[in-house]
């Protein structure tokens, strides 16, 4: 734990009697870009708010840069937060929004001007210094919110769903912007998102959360390629997840023999991994969709619904037609829980 810059130890978070995060341990290395990923209500935002000091933990410790921050008030922590709604001050201009924290530090005016101008230039808002937030687009407001936090040179920058309020084009732009800022400043960033593609594209490491518990921590490659739990596999697009016991696969209605032996509790396959046209399993095609490079099928079989996909060039099956398929061992993903 020596190289952990942010360290959450046995953190327990609750709103009144409603426990959101029972016990959470997490270490973040300095300069990392971490995604807290999970469905709504999984505790990711609560965890972020606890790091910021906006909510007090029931128990556990929060260390940042070796200092125990658990009881430190939010305004003394030196942490930046880019709010989902941007939380800009509507009565202040762009310049004054960005200068807000610096003025509280009582820096000399000349220094404030210099830092703010540099900060606004870095996010491309230097020409809009006299505008009020209401006169700016969503993307500009977001960049101002980012600049307002960055000029404070926070130890950690937290971002709450930073891309969710932007349209598709701006989202790509902002993604690149965040990565660039992170490269240039080397700041430790933690962002919260419910969108797996955002986390995969942006993060150095992903912390996947569910029901207040960390399901898995890993690089985007690890989480996408080798999720370790049923929840993680489901979240990253493994459509076919079945309980197995030895060499049988346990379907909803019936158990059938699998072609190989397995020691894990569950096995999962992506749709493309299912062999179609050969094999010991059969079912009826209930749905079929052409998706560019491949054709996707929903198959109703004795072990339940199976999602399969074949290259678009392969012969296609019609809805209602019988289809045979198999679960190959080499593309199967074993899951412990």
């Amino acid at each position: 734990m020596s190289n952990a810059f942010v360290s959450l130890q046995k953190l327990s978070l609750a709103y009144g009697s409603n426990i959101v995060v029972p016990e959470l341990d997490l270490d973040i290395v300095e300069g990392e870009l971490i995604a807290l990923l999970g469905p709504s209500g999984c505790g990711k935002t609560t965890t972020m708010r606890a790091i910021a000091g906006l909510m007090a933990p029931q128990s556990g410790r929060i260390y940042i840069d070796g200092i125990d921050m658990t009881r430190m008030p939010a305004n003394k922590r030196g942490i930046g937060l880019v709010f989902q709604s941007y939380a800009l001050f509507p009565h202040l201009t762009t310049f004054e929004n960005a200068a807000f924290g610096l003025r509280l530090k009582k820096l000399p005016q000349a220094e404030i001007t210099q830092i703010v101008e540099r900060g606004l230039r870095a996010v491309g808002l230097d020409r809009l210094a006299d505008r009020k937030p209401a006169e700016m687009s969503g993307g500009q407001q977001q960049r101002l919110s980012l600049a307002r936090s960055l000029v404070m040179q926070p130890k950690v920058l937290l971002l709450d769903e930073p891309l969710s309020n932007l349209d598709a084009r701006l989202r790509l732009e902002m993604r690149a912007e965040l990565q660039r800022v992170q490269k240039e400043t080397g700041i430790t960033m933690v962002f919260v998102t419910h969108d797996q593609s955002e986390a995969l594209a942006l993060a150095d490491r992903i912390v996947l959360m569910n029901n207040g518990i960390i399901e898995q921590i890993g690089t985007p490659d690890e989480l996408y390629g080798a999720p370790k739990t049923k929840f993680a596999a489901d979240f990253f697009g493994f459509e076919n997840i079945f309980e197995v016991e030895g060499n049988t696969i346990k379907g909803a209605a019936q158990s059938l023999p699998l072609g190989f032996e397995s020691t894990s509790k569950y096995l999962a396959w992506r749709p493309g991994a299912i062999d179609v046209g050969v094999g010991n399993f059969s079912g009826i095609v209930r749905g079929s969709a052409f998706a560019g490079e491949q054709r996707e099928y929903i198959i109703e079989s004795k072990i339940g619904q199976v999602h399969a996909a074949t290259p678009a060039a392969d012969p296609s099956y019609k809805i209602g037609e019988e289809i045979v398929f198999d679960f190959p061992q080499d593309h199967s993903l074993p899951l412990a829980r």
């Binding site: 000091g53 906006l54 305004n75 922590r77 937060l81 709604s85 939380a87 800009l88 807000f100 307002r148």
Partner: peptide, 21 residues
Amino acid sequence: RGDMEEAAVLLGCSRIGAFMR
């Protein structure tokens, strides 16, 4: 929106300061 006050606090304001400013 209530998060404006939180933003002010994170930028170094006290709670009363956030209310006043």
